[in-house]
Amino acid sequence: MDRIPILKLGRALLVTVQVDMHDRLAMALEEDLSEKIVATNARGVLIDISGLEIVDSFMGRMLDNIAAVSRLLDADTVVVGMRPAVAITLVELGLSLTGVKTALNVDRGMALIGTGFGAHDGADDDGVGSEDTDGRVEG
């Protein structure tokens, strides 16, 4: 059976989805990824979908599932490279992938890994946060 290759890239795993996935391939990817996260101590998963012409609700659910499983295994998931037409169509379909973090490309996705984007209460944010609050006092 075909498998989608999973590459290790620093502390992240990179999956490039090029082919038009059918169900079994998608299920296999979920399983392979969760095993590999644990085996490699990965802190994040980058899923490059720049090769995908469409994302339907089946694929959207798969991306959501992968993100949820990864989160339980202490890894962040970033979907990168979504085509503009796919984004437009997904929103019209009613699927805004709220459970999944996205980035425009692999570099920007990598920058998000391990930054704890899920929990925005780190010390680094404090300065910016208070400035924002100060600026709004007039309102």
Partner: peptide, 17 residues
């Protein structure tokens, strides 16, 4: 165009499934 293509292919995928 590319957006219309994407929309009809996505709709077809949902209904075929």
């Amino acid at each position: 165009g590319i957006v219309d293509q994407t929309k009809i292919i996505t709709a077809a995928s949902e209904l075929a499934r």
